[in-house]
Every structure is written in structure tokens, then in C-alpha cells.
């Protein structure tokens, strides 16, 4: 039987990781924007501004739409946040430092990612508003296109481990990180991961320049919750990228968990910087690229990894 920690420890650890991660995303996003603009400014400002923005949302007046699906609207951010917590709980900080390590960890993570599209669709459909629904459709089209490259990119990491467990996947990277063994894997994962958490250039469903997308009708606490859930999902995606491709806890000198946290931070910074550096991709372009380029590349990645192992 695989080790599971107690329920209290699991809850506390996941909650702590989520809170720290969400705050880190907010700070790093501003930091990346400042870096791109070339003026970092004061650190105190960077650290305080996200909290101030959150506080402002807390006291903002709530508005609503005509005949929304109230239950769906309320459930969507909670579902999204829950999925992020579920996904993050599967990522190991160290060989014995993991909240849950099911023998099908990779499938469980993929199931959480697949459920994200339901959360986003629910969030866009329930306010009964055209722009929100358009955002949901854009995400649906993108999500259905990147599901297969996502699964294939992750699957290739399971090949050298001969296991679907994420701890085993990281453990198998001791001789060489997957980013070296499968050079196609990490770029594919990053593209798809950015799409999953709809951030930066692939923010096709929630960006302000596509009329606000699914969260156009959100206000106050609901918008804050949705933002938090999005950030939490981004943390989970970055952590899984660090575990699956960048060797997880393996690294010289420093202890394992420190390496894991540093790598997660690096992936996060890369994704957030991409959001400020790259232009938004049109949905039609992305769908075409996903089906015609990403899937063949991901298949090639799986075949080459398999051939090397044989």
C-alpha cells in the first residue's frame, strides 16, 4: 500500500500550498510585468498591491444578470478551486513528502484537467450572458483540442518510470531529467499548460480584450474567488511541470523540497512572463495548431521516448 498522510495534515498542507501559491502568482505576475516593462520599482509595492486589489474586490458591490443559473454560477469557482487543490495534492515535494500518491496519479491529474473545462463552461454558461457564453465556447474549443497533446506529453513521462504514479515518475528522473531525455516534452506541456489555466497568450476565455470572457458578469467576491481558483490551477500546472519534466526534487546541495519549490517558481515565472511578452493567439489559429502540429509532435515524442527505452 502506498503512503497516505493523515487527513488533517493533508488539509493543512494543501491549504498552505494553495494560499502561498496563489499569492506567489499574484506577486510574480506583477513582477514579470515590471521586468518586461524594464522598471521593477519598489518591492513593498509589489508585495502589497495584490492584497489591496483583493480587498477592493471584497467590498465591491455585487451585480447580477437577468435569470442566471444561480447554483451553477456559485458552484463554478468552487469546483475550479477544488480541482486545483486535487491536482496540487498529487504533486510530490519529496520522495515521501506527498499528500496522495495513487497508483494512477497521472490519470487522476488528467481527469482534473479535463474537469476544468466543465468548470469553465459552467462559469460561462450560468450567468445567462452572451459574452460569457462566447468565452466558454472558446475555452471549450481550445480545451477539446489540447486535451490529446496534454495526455500524450504527460504519457511520455510515464514511459521511463514504467508507472503511472507521479512519485515513480519523478523517481525515474534521477539519471537524467525528462527535459533532457524528452526535449519536446516540456515545451509541449508548457503550451498546453498555459492553455489549461488560460493564462497569457492562450487566455482565450477570460481576457479583458475578448470582452471579458466567462468572468465578464462576475463582480466582487465572485470575481475574487474565480481569480484565486485560476491562480491555484496555474500553480498546480506549474508544479506538475516541475515534477514531470524538471526532475522534481532531484538536484545538488539543496534539500529536495527546496528544489521542487524553486523549479515550480521558475516555471511559474516563465509562464507569467510569456503572458506579458507574447501576443494573444486567435482561437482558430490555436485549434489548427493544436490538431495539426501539437498532436503529431506529441506522438513523435511518445514514439521516440519509447524507442529509446527499447
Amino acid at each position: 500500500m502506498r503512503p497516505y498522510v493523515g487527513a488533517e495534515v493533508a488539509l493543512l498542507a494543501t491549504a498552505a500550498a494553495l494560499v502561498a501559491g496563489v499569492y506567489l502568482v499574484a506577486v510574480l505576475d506583477r513582477f514579470a510585468a515590471a521586468l518586461v516593462a524594464g522598471a521593477v520599482g519598489s518591492w513593498r509595492r509589489l508585495l502589497v498591491v495584490p492584497l489591496a486589489a483583493a480587498a477592493a474586490l471584497l467590498v465591491q458591490q455585487r451585480r447580477t444578470t437577468e435569470r442566471p443559473d444561480g447554483a451553477g454560477w456559485a458552484v463554478a469557482p468552487a469546483l475550479f478551486f477544488g480541482l486545483a487543490a486535487f491536482a496540487l495534492a498529487l504533486v510530490p515535494l519529496g520522495p515521501d513528502l506527498v499528500i496522495a500518491d495513487p497508483s494512477t496519479g497521472f490519470v487522476a491529474f488528467s481527469a482534473a484537467i479535463a474537469f476544468v473545462m466543465i468548470a469553465v463552461f459552467l462559469h460561462g454558461w450560468s450567468p445567462n450572458s452572451p459574452f460569457a457564453l462566447h468565452g466558454a465556447y472558446r475555452y471549450g474549443a481550445a480545451a477539446l483540442s489540447f486535451q490529446i497533446p496534454f495526455l500524450l506529453a504527460m504519457l511520455a513521462t510515464a514511459l521511463p518510470a514504467e508507472s503511472l504514479s507521479i512519485v515513480d515518475i519523478v523517481r525515474a528522473q534521477e539519471p537524467a531529467w525528462n527535459v533532457l531525455r524528452q526535449p519536446l516534452g516540456l515545451p509541449l506541456y508548457l503550451v498546453v499548460g498555459v492553455g489549461v489555466s488560460f493564462w497569457g497568450p492562450l487566455n482565450l476565455s477570460d481576457a479583458s480584450d475578448v470582452a471579458g470572457g466567462t468572468s465578464v458578469e462576475d463582480s466582487g467576491v465572485a470575481r475574487l474567488l474565480w481569480t484565486i481558483a485560476r491562480s491555484a490551477m496555474l500553480v498546480a500546472v506549474a508544479a506538475m511541470g516541475a515534477a514531470g519534466f524538471l526532475g522534481g526534487w532531484w538536484g545538488p546541495i539543496l534539500p529536495g523540497p527546496a528544489w521542487m519549490i524553486a523549479k515550480t517558481g521558475a516555471v511559474l515565472l516563465a509562464i507569467l512572463a510569456a503572458g506579458h511578452l507574447l501576443a494573444r493567439v486567435r482561437i482558430a489559429t490555436f485549434v489548427l495548431v493544436a490538431w495539426a502540429v501539437l498532436i503529431p509532435l506529441a506522438l513523435l515524442n511518445v514514439f521516440v521516448s519509447g524507442a529509446i527505452l527499447l
Binding site: 495513487p102 487522476a108 463552461f121
Partner: peptide, 19 residues
């Protein structure tokens, strides 16, 4: 475990197509 997870994974995609 595997069957249950795959069931959920598959159905999430299907529901979106259905909608």
C-alpha cells in the same frame, strides 16, 4: 482506480461535446 479515473476523464470531454 484506473477504470474510475478514466471514466471521469472520458465523461468530462464528452459532456462538453454534448453541450
Amino acid at each position: 482506480e484506473f477504470l474510475g479515473m478514466v471514466l471521469i476523464l472520458m465523461m468530462a470531454g464528452e459532456m462538453l461535446i454534448m453541450a
